[in-house]
Computed example of a mutant assay.
Amino acid sequence: MITAMHTLVYAEDPEAARAFFRDVLRLPGVDTGGGWLIFRTGPSEMGVHPSSWEGVGGGAQGTDQAFDVSFMCDDLAATMAELRERGAELDGDVVDQGWGLTVGVRVPGAGTITIYEPTYDPPALG
């Protein structure tokens, strides 16, 4: 039986990314040895999306990605304010996707990860 999902983030600067997850996002975790941190990310859920779709206003869109990682929160505005106070850099404006409100947060050495406040009842929290 599957009991959890393990997610990997690949970073050009893993020490900076680990510090961000530990100090800015304040994810609890353990050091498995030599500074290799494994973080608890709480409940999880998984969706399966098509690799191509019609964009808002028409026009074909798509992705070559096979996997994606997002962080979920219950109040995006409050989460953004809290993360800014801790030095996080947010990427862009809040976007209403219909299924949730989204914004990107920059992870040092690893790119941008989406944070979202769902507008649906998340099964991860049920």
Rank of each mutant, 00 (worst) to 15 (best):
95 V>P: 05
12 E>S: 13
13 D>C: 09
36 W>V: 11
13 D>V: 02
120 Y>R: 04
43 P>Y: 00
65 Q>S: 15
76 L>P: 01
97 Q>I: 04
90 L>Q: 07
11 A>Q: 01
5 M>A: 14
28 P>A: 03
118 P>H: 09
65 Q>T: 15
17 A>C: 12
110 A>C: 10
90 L>D: 08
109 G>A: 06
121 D>V: 09
29 G>P: 03
8 L>T: 14
37 L>R: 11
9 V>C: 03
48 V>I: 14
75 D>I: 06
29 G>C: 07
78 A>Q: 07
41 T>Y: 11
15 E>T: 15
37 L>C: 14
100 G>A: 02
107 V>G: 02
53 W>G: 08
21 F>D: 00
22 R>N: 03
107 V>H: 00
48 V>S: 07
74 D>T: 14
73 C>Y: 09
39 F>N: 02
17 A>W: 01
65 Q>L: 14
66 A>V: 15
94 V>S: 09
78 A>Y: 08
90 L>N: 04
84 R>L: 11
43 P>M: 01
64 D>M: 06
41 T>C: 15
17 A>Q: 00
36 W>Y: 15
18 R>M: 10
44 S>A: 09
1 M>S: 15
9 V>E: 05
115 I>L: 11
45 E>N: 02
3 T>I: 13
34 G>Y: 14
73 C>S: 10
17 A>D: 03
40 R>I: 09
101 L>Q: 04
88 A>H: 04
96 D>P: 03
3 T>G: 14
74 D>V: 13
42 G>D: 04
94 V>P: 13
2 I>V: 12
13 D>F: 03
60 A>H: 11
69 V>I: 14
100 G>F: 05
54 E>R: 06
57 G>L: 03
70 S>K: 08
7 T>Y: 11
58 G>L: 05
36 W>L: 15
107 V>S: 00
32 T>N: 13
27 L>T: 05
53 W>Q: 02
67 F>C: 07
22 R>D: 05
73 C>G: 12
106 R>E: 10
93 D>E: 11
122 P>C: 05
92 G>P: 03
38 I>P: 00
97 Q>T: 08
2 I>R: 09
47 G>F: 14
115 I>H: 03
18 R>N: 09
80 M>V: 08
32 T>I: 12
71 F>M: 05
61 Q>D: 08
78 A>P: 05
